[in-house]
Nucleic acid binder design. Structure first.
Length: 499
RNA sequence: GCGCCUCUAGCUCAAUCGGCAGAGCAACUGACUCUUAAUCAGUGGGUUCCGGGUUCGAUUCCCGGGGGGCGCACCA
């Protein structure tokens, strides 16, 4: 799609017809000494306020109440001597305005018909009345263009195409109630989660997004360069290693909600930049973090929708109620596959099972086979919210060993409707074991795994100063919005990346 | 990154077995003092994503490029 551009005073011949016509109207306004974009207007009421004040007037009533308000023109019905327009506020609420020749005069009404287009912001003042059909209206004494629109709105009687909605989200927000609603829901969910954290005396912090070493997860990073430091920098893939430094420093209950960046594929559930919540609690463990996570999500559902039976876009009900199940990864895999699988099971056995199931896994790690097999056998059957507990050690380098089960770590993943929603750990705080794990990762990196972590000496140094036993959790915010609405990730993010 | 599908007016979409490109809404002109997707009469608006090829003729067929969608891979 090519985009037209224009400069004031230039030839407008190549512009689309409707833009040229509207630019000419703007010029006509200006040359008659009228502002097309006035700096301020004496607004007395919002559209919502007028609607709230007069919820149910009779037909054909004059209130004697004069109001001054503004809104975007969404519909116009211009007749000879009595014109109607529907104004819309940013909230989406609408009110009808009426201009009669009797009230404003013939030439003023002609000006109105000549200059006001669909989409313009219009200021009016006049009496609140109801029309002969009973529609709550403002009978206009005077009007003024509040902002002249140069581009026409799309027609309101067809759904916008997916691409247009994403590329012109501001238009989408004007014409589609649900788009406005989703923005509001997202804001309310964030508020609710911050409320839950405040109740539990957590402190919100912001840690670096530009990092010299990317760590805390395994994913390909975006690279950039600092001119001042003449060094390569990475956009963070996770805030984990900095939040743990904060815990070392005595910020015992700490969380961050901010963007992570991962240079991976994008689909219905993945975006290159995505909002992430991470929280750490000194003297907590993965059990307390599971409880926290369940509370965060349940509180959000209650605060925003007033129910734990959340209705999704397709009408299905997502039941978030009750105490969420906790199942063991190895146990559930053994049950579902019919083969006893433990951390001691020989990798050759796992390979054979994977081959039999038609899974192509080419990876050196035992744990990778366990996780892939688990996804194959168990993941699809999880519909209720479920914590999957106790992961293989070799794929979870930042998690401490299980307190009583050998070969696994104290890590859970929370699945809701088959999507991985959150993860939680009992954090590894032993600097010696952490170093060993990092060295192992670096060894894998050398073997050609580009996503394995580099050694973060500064983080290790922080651990050497002593990190208290802690629980940690991470949750994708965009994913949470998807879980609560049933929308795709590009609908939960207001301005998703487009080329 | 790979495979399949797709791109036509401001918006949503038709059509072309290769032969003057259409509709609804929007726009423009006119009529209309109670409309509310107002109505009625009329008018204009297109590099059919871009570049090349085949052809008397390409928007349609072929090749290349770009945007978008879906699936697979990677990842949360």
């Amino acid at each position: 799609m090519t985009e037209e551009s224009y400069l004031p005073g230039e030839e407008e011949q190549d512009l689309p017809e409707q833009i040229a016509i509207r630019l000419a109207k703007r010029e006509r306004l200006l040359s008659s000494g009228v502002e097309a974009y006035p700096v301020s207007l004496p607004i007395s009421h919002t559209i919502d306020a007028v609607r709230a004040k007069y919820p149910d007037l009779e037909i054909d009533v004059a209130t004697g109440d004069t109001v001054a308000l503004a809104g975007r023109v969404m519909f116009q019905r211009n007749t000879g001597k009595l014109c109607f327009a529907t104004l819309q506020a940013g909230s989406g609420s609408r009110i009808q305005v009426m201009l009669s020749q009797e009230k404003v005069g013939e030439s003023n009404l002609e000006h109105y018909k000549d200059l006001v287009d669909l989409g313009d912001h219009l200021f009016v003042s006049g009496e609140v009345i109801t029309s002969k059909r009973g529609e709550l209206s403002v009978l206009v004494d005077s009007w003024q263009i509040a902002a002249k629109t140069i581009r026409p709105l799309p027609n309101l009687h067809n759904e916008l195409g997916e691409e247009y909605r994403v590329r012109h989200r501001y238009v989408d927000l004007i014409v589609r109630d649900r788009a406005r609603e989703v923005v509001k829901i997202r804001s309310q969910v964030m508020q609710s989660m911050r409320k839950t954290f405040i109740e539990r005396t957590f402190i919100e912090v912001e840690t670096p997004m530009l990092q010299t070493i990317h760590g805390g997860a395994s994913a390909r990073p975006f690279k950039t360069h600092s001119n001042a430091f003449d060094t390569e920098l990475f956009l963070r893939i996770a805030p984990e290693l900095f939040l743990k430094r904060a815990v070392v420093g005595g910020i015992d209950r700490v969380y961050e909600i901010n963007r992570n960046f991962r240079n991976e594929g994008a689909d219905r559930t993945h975006s290159p930049e995505f909002a992430m919540l991470e929280a750490y609690e000194a003297y907590g463990d993965y059990n307390t973090m599971a409880e926290l996570t369940q509370s965060l999500i349940q509180n959000a559902a209650l605060d925003v929708f007033g129910t734990l039976q959340v209705e999704l876009e397709d009408g299905e009900i997502n039941d978030l109620s009750g105490e969420w199940d906790r199942i063991s990864m190895f146990e559930s895999l053994s049950n579902a596959s019919g083969v006893e699988i433990t951390p001691e099971t020989d990798i050759a056995v796992l390979k054979k099972l994977a081959d039999k199931e038609g899974l192509e896994i080419d990876h050196p790690l035992h744990g990778k086979y366990v996780e892939e097999l688990w996804e194959h056998f168990v993941k699809g059957s999880l519909t209720k919210p479920t914590f999957v507990m106790d992961f293989p050690v070799d794929t979870s380098p930042l998690v401490r060993n299980h307190r009583s089960v050998a070969g696994v770590v104290e890590k859970w993943d929370l699945y809701i409707r088959g999507y991985e929603q959150a993860t939680g750990y009992s954090e590894l705080v032993d600097p010696v074991i952490q170093r060993e794990r990092f060295v192992e990762q670096a060894r894998l990196a050398a073997a050609g795994d580009p996503e394995a972590m580099k050694l973060d000496e500064e983080f290790l140094k922080a651990l050497e100063f002593g990190m208290p036993p802690s629980g940690g959790m991470g949750m994708g915010i965009d994913r949470l919005l998807m879980t609560l609405t049933g929308l795709g990730i590009r609908e939960t993010i207001m301005f998703p990346l487009v080329k």
